[in-house]
Amino acid sequence: MCKEKILIFGVGVAGRALYRELNSTHNIIGFIDNNKRLDGTKYNNKKIHSLDKLPLLSFDKIAITGIWVNSMKNQLQSLNIKDSKIMEIADNAINFSTQSRTKETDNIMKNISQIFTDNKIDYYIIGSSLATLFRNKDLSSVADVDLFLTSQKDAISFYDFITTSPLFKEYDIEKVLYLEDEILVKKGDIKKIIISSKSIKAQEEPSIIDISIADFLDEKYMVRHGVNYIYIPKNLCEGLRYHKYKDLELQIPFLAEDYLCLLYGKNWIIPPKKWDQSDYGNLLSPVEVQKLKESLGAR
């Protein structure tokens, strides 16, 4: 085992997966995280420290991975952490999947698909989850399964169905609301619905289905991504198309390959070793969305 003292930046999905990847071969002494509320708590008996405590800690390297690596690097450099102390792990070296997680993820997707089909609700698998389908990998191999609904009406109906259906009584269901009026939404609108398995173990990641509710502007579906927006041109979704995944038929954008090319570039079929959230080809800032909305209103 490597004797260097390693801190992991982030105790979210990517950080926990990185812990499981490195724990048997490296000396993991704890985590650092931007969430100050986690300071002093533990994950699998490893202490979590808020980022502002970093100058007080003794360590050799800080391990980072995931789509926020550039932001992490910037934060560490602002604290005078040398690049030689930053240990960046390629995204495609991290595996979120286990046999039981694969089974649980597939079960949730089966139940979700049944609700959508029975109630005639359109949805679309998107992002890394869609790329995973085309790469013939298990959906459990990504941090969470991303999909979106096209209207608040469908979101309300879907939430009502799953919170009363016996199929979902074993899962945690979270409805995330907008807390204030924003460019395209009103306070109280549904931002996303998150469905996850209840059993959380240090050696295994829970299955998570992340359902975003898209807004619509200028013939584009707009899905919130952090503080920014990822857009999906409406014409790429028009028409029904299903992708065969094991014993399921999952709905995907009709021109899915064009969408993935827009998102990741022409070589989207090959998983990148490094991917930052700012690398998406269909990313819009709030300022850009506001200007677009104003320009449409002026026509």
Rank of each mutant, 00 (worst) to 15 (best):
S113C: 13
A256T: 06
A214R: 02
A298P: 00
S199T: 14
S84F: 09
F161I: 10
K42F: 15
T164W: 06
V289A: 07
I112H: 00
A143I: 01
L139C: 00
V289H: 05
V11P: 03
T117A: 12
T150V: 14
C2T: 12
L167R: 13
G239Q: 09
D122N: 15
I64P: 03
L76H: 04
I67M: 13
I8V: 02
S129C: 05
C261E: 14
D258Q: 15
A155S: 07
L184F: 00
F158V: 03
N70T: 13
K175S: 01
N111D: 14
K234Q: 15
S113A: 15
D83E: 05
Q114E: 15
D138V: 04
F96H: 07
A298I: 12
A202I: 04
P55M: 07
D210Y: 03
K61F: 08
I183R: 05
I208W: 00
Y242S: 07
E174W: 12
S212A: 12
D106L: 07
L296P: 00
L292M: 15
M109I: 11
S285E: 09
K246S: 06
V69E: 07
V142S: 00
V287C: 10
D52I: 13
S58K: 15
N45K: 13
E174Y: 14
I211D: 04
L177E: 04
Y124A: 00
K274R: 14
V176L: 09
I48Q: 04
L7Y: 10
L284E: 10
L133S: 02
D83M: 03
T163Q: 09
D146C: 03
S295K: 12
L184Q: 01
S141Y: 05
W275S: 01
K42M: 10
L167K: 15
A298E: 13
Y171E: 02
E88N: 10
D33C: 06
K103M: 12
K186G: 08
K53F: 03
I28A: 01
D160T: 15
D258F: 12
N44Y: 07
V142Y: 01
S97T: 11
